[in-house]
């Protein structure tokens, strides 16, 4: 089963919870953890890898114009919806950082003087530690092509029975790229009015896409009851509640520190795992 951890904004604890949950599952089976927060991936920072494979580039096919034969008709510039081409008396200039690799310009060129070359938009890195395989996507500096990078990252991820995806924050295109590839989404939210406003945006996305989803309230001993009330009113399942701890917030190893607060009587990850098993049965 593929489960994404998402949130309407950054800093809700989505990555921490995704990794903590991966650790919990990895106690008795293999799990793939995908860091799809490609603009700022950080799972590798907290991952003691026993092996790390060489990073592999991800590229898009970008047009190359043969300006020696280009007739300067401007058809390609007119066609491009992304303003990735410009024409002056020297010929056509391509702006690879704006090109969406749709291939349209080479189709409309009347004299076929447009070919394509790979343009690197980022890379993926695979690392292993015992039962966890972590794959991370990292967007190249200056590139804005998060969506195609995430799509390729998800293709390259090792196939395991359980795959946990640390989704990019927000409810825009990069979340869509993840949402299209998963069976269920865990929405991580903080119990504050701001947290609720951000949660509502991702709940809208999940409902629109008719996805299985539930909410984890992080830092549940702070703020107010607005997120709880919202979930009750909209019949959204609260999968787990995780308190805020001073020592976790101030730790350089927040995940092991957080885990040290859990015991057999009280483990939010166990509750989450039970909810996921129920989803698995439904799927």
């Amino acid at each position: 089963m593929k489960i994404a951890f998402a949130s309407g904004k950054g800093g809700t604890g989505k990555s921490t919870i995704a990794r903590t949950f991966a650790n919990y599952i990895a106690k008795d089976k293999h799990v793939s953890l995908i860091d799809a927060d490609v603009e700022e991936p950080n799972q590798l920072l907290f991952f003691k890898a026993s092996t790390t494979e060489a990073s592999k580039p991800v590229s898009l096919p970008i047009p190359v114009i043969d300006n020696d034969i280009c007739s300067k008709c401007g058809a390609c510039v007119k066609f491009c919806n992304y303003n990735a081409l410009s024409l002056n008396k020297k010929g056509v200039t391509v702006f690879p950082e704006l090109c969406h690799a749709c291939g349209g310009c080479s189709m409309v060129c009347p004299i076929n003087c447009i070919s394509e070359t790979p343009h690197e938009i980022g890379e993926t890195t695979l690392a292993h530690n015992k039962n966890i395989s972590l794959i991370q996507g990292k967007l190249a500096i200056g590139s804005s092509h998060a969506t195609p990078l995430i799509e390729e990252l998800l293709k390259r991820a090792p196939q395991n029975k359980t795959t946990i995806i640390d989704s990019p924050p927000g409810s825009a295109c990069s979340l869509m790229a993840v949402a299209n590839a998963v069976d269920a989404i865990v929405l991580v939210a903080e119990p504050t009015p701001f947290g609720l406003a951000n949660l509502e945006t991702v709940v809208d996305v999940c409902e629109e896409l008719e996805l299985l989803f539930g909410v984890v309230i992080n830092r549940c001993n702070m703020g107010n009851t607005c997120v709880l009330d919202f979930c009750q009113k909209h019949d959204i399942e609260i999968l787990a509640e995780i308190p805020w701890y001073y020592d976790v917030a101030s730790s350089c190893q927040p995940i092991s520190q957080l885990e040290s607060h859990f015991n057999t009587q009280n483990n939010p990850m166990q509750k989450l795992a039970e909810a996921v098993s129920k989803w698995e049965a439904e799927c």
């Binding site: 992304y82 303003n83 990735a84 410009s86 702006f95 704006l98 804005s144």
Partner: peptide, 8 residues
Amino acid sequence: AAQGAGIS
């Protein structure tokens, strides 16, 4: 334009 306003 969403992107490339300067170019266009």
